[in-house]
Simulated scan of single mutants.
Amino acid sequence: MSTFIYMVRHGESPKTGGDERERGLSPKGEADARQVTARLRSEGIHAFYSSPYVRAVQTIADLAEELGQEIVPDEALKEKIWMEGNRPLPEDELYPALRKMYADADFALPGGESNNECQARAVQVLKDILRKHPGENIVIGTHGLVMALMMGYFSADYGLEFLMQTKKPDIYRMEFTGEKLSGVERIPL
């Protein structure tokens, strides 16, 4: 019996420099969220989990509402804490920092988390979801790096190169038998 996890990376969200948790979707991100709803409405989704960050919740909210489901926010699914104060990393510093973080999974910027720390908290929630929902179809509203780290835990195919080619939004259907990954398919929008 297979369990399917639909990793939904959030839609476009303007970087305002404010609190990362409260950053919502841009108008394009809202349109993209409607595409996510259209694409997943017939997938037989049983449950919804999400990062508590507004942009992740908003990307899957219309689908959950349409299907009469609640979204369960989980703090462990939040975006990686990049640096002290939970501020976003400036664009010109992002790729060099990611290269360091992928070269040394224990490397962290001052006040931030390492890839190992972020991966450990997110994968634990994913394993809990798999145990709670065997044979079901589950949507997880997530962030690019957190998604790549969760997927990378199960297969080395999902490293930095994978992360850099993902889109906003993006959907990956992961098939599990128990806690063993048996396949991944990108769902086109």
Rank of each mutant, 00 (worst) to 15 (best):
V146M: 01
I71N: 07
M83V: 12
P88A: 07
E117A: 11
I138A: 05
E91H: 13
A47L: 03
K127F: 04
E113S: 03
F48Q: 10
V72E: 13
A120I: 03
E43A: 14
T37A: 15
I129T: 05
G112Q: 02
Q119K: 03
E117G: 04
L77P: 00
A56Q: 06
Q124C: 06
L98W: 05
L109V: 13
I140S: 01
N86T: 08
A122L: 01
C118A: 14
L77C: 06
R121V: 04
R39C: 14
P88N: 03
T142R: 00
V139Y: 07
D74E: 15
H46Q: 10
Q69I: 12
A76T: 05
I81D: 01
Y102V: 13
L126N: 00
N116I: 08
R55E: 11
A76V: 02
A122M: 08
T142L: 04
D92N: 15
H143Y: 08
Y102W: 15
G44T: 06
M83W: 02
A105L: 11
A61T: 13
K78P: 07
A64N: 07
C118V: 00
P52Y: 07
E93A: 06
E65W: 14
G144Q: 08
L63K: 01
E93P: 05
I140E: 03
Q119S: 08
